[in-house]
């Protein structure tokens, strides 16, 4: 089966995110005060072959860790399956 998997890379809490801070200060909170904070990250989308969602999530996590798609010192990641096809 083919899965579509997202990898989102964000700065950890406590590591300043000037892009997010600037967007928050000059755009989001100017739009309406309901925007309380903004964080900017990186978004990667993979199409991955596998037999289950857990398997492909694990594979993407391994890629991210072993090939340093993020730096665990300063970033946190979120991996999630957003689609699949080719299943029975």
């Amino acid at each position: 089966m083919k899965f579509t998997v997202e990898l989102i890379i964000m700065n950890k809490e406590g590591v300043r995110d000037p892009e997010g801070e600037t967007l928050q200060k000059y755009v989001a909170e100017k739009f309406t005060s309901k925007f309380l904070s903004t964080r900017v990250g990186k978004y990667l989308r993979f199409e991955v072959e596998g037999s289950s969602g857990e398997e492909v999530v694990e594979l993407v996590k391994r890629l991210a860790n072993e090939r340093k798609l993020y730096n665990p010192l300063v970033h946190k990641i979120e991996v999630r399956v957003v689609g699949q096809d080719g299943g029975d």
């Binding site: 700065n11 590591v15 300043r16 000037p18 892009e19 730096n71 010192l73 300063v74």
Partner: peptide, 10 residues
């Protein structure tokens, strides 16, 4: 060790 992040003033 450490990391090099985007400059604070971007």
């Amino acid at each position: 060790e450490g990391a090099l992040l985007p400059n604070l003033n971007l």
